[in-house]
């Protein structure tokens, strides 16, 4: 569950001040896959960063898994980032000198997970995203779609309850984009992970359960796609 309650967020001060969120409200129930759309600069990434605890609001509250993240101390916030909430970006943010395997293992090493446990979880994550055969490749030796799979495996390896994806298909062609969205959808359905996916493309947005459109710092439109399978 993710809940934003009257969230205000500005950046900068004086003449360079930007008002990004102006009383933003949103509740995403556990297990939902929700897409966020909106013009460039409307605050989509900011919304994800708020839920990941990477940015804090000027006022209002954000609840993640029922807990107000403003009330967490530094240790609890670190735990939240290392174990509960994973982020996938448009740029894959893989370390170029590490193999696919080591990139995926990284969050577990930061969390001092024991080696056998690490191997089991990395193998499982690589398997889930269908990329086990690339485990020894470096990022430069992989396609965009493969790199994004590695990045998703790295997100999943911590067994998060929430995955935040910021334009995960932004650097991919349409066939690779479809595979990535299908993968996220499968993971949402099989693992029950709550997801927020920022996208500019209505086709990928429509693969989710719900579309929230941002405008003027608030929710401009909230479309439920809970339509049961009818004819096209």
């Amino acid at each position: 569950m993710i809940r934003y309650q009257s969230v205000h967020k500005n950046f900068g001060a004086g003449p360079t001040r930007v008002e990004v969120l102006r009383g933003f409200d949103l509740e995403i129930p556990a297990g939902q896959m929700c897409s966020i759309m909106g013009p460039s600069g409307s605050g989509k990434s900011t919304i994800l960063h708020l839920a990941a605890g990477l940015v804090s609001p000027d006022s209002g509250s954000i609840f993640v898994g029922g807990r107000d993240i403003a009330k967490l101390d530094e240790d609890e916030l670190t735990t939240l980032r290392r174990r509960d909430v994973a982020v996938v970006f448009q740029v894959f943010n893989l370390l170029p000198f590490l193999s696919a395997y080591d990139n995926v293992a990284l969050p577990l090493r930061l969390d001092n997970v024991e080696r056998n446990e690490e191997r089991r979880r990395v193998e499982e994550a690589l398997e889930l995203v269908g990329i086990s055969h690339r485990r020894n490749h470096k990022p430069a030796q992989m396609s965009g779609g493969e790199s994004q799979r590695i990045a998703i495996a790295r997100a999943l390896v911590i067994s998060p309850s929430i995955v935040l994806a910021d334009e995960p298909t932004g650097n991919l062609d349409s066939a690779a984009s479809r595979q990535i969205i299908d993968l996220l959808r499968d993971l949402n359905e099989t693992l029950g992970v709550t997801m927020m996916v920022v996208t500019h493309d209505p086709v990928w947005a429509a693969c989710c359960d719900r579309i929230v459109r941002l405008g003027e710092g608030v929710t401009e439109d909230d479309i439920s796609l809970d339509c049961e399978a009818r004819a096209v």
Binding site: P202, A205, A206, D221, C227, A229, V232
Partner: peptide, 17 residues
């Protein structure tokens, strides 16, 4: 736009099925 997005959602579900 809501009508169109719902239509896209149906297409995507059908594809997955």
């Amino acid at each position: 736009r809501g009508i169109y997005l719902t239509r896209l959602a149906r297409i995507s579900r059908r594809r997955r099925r």
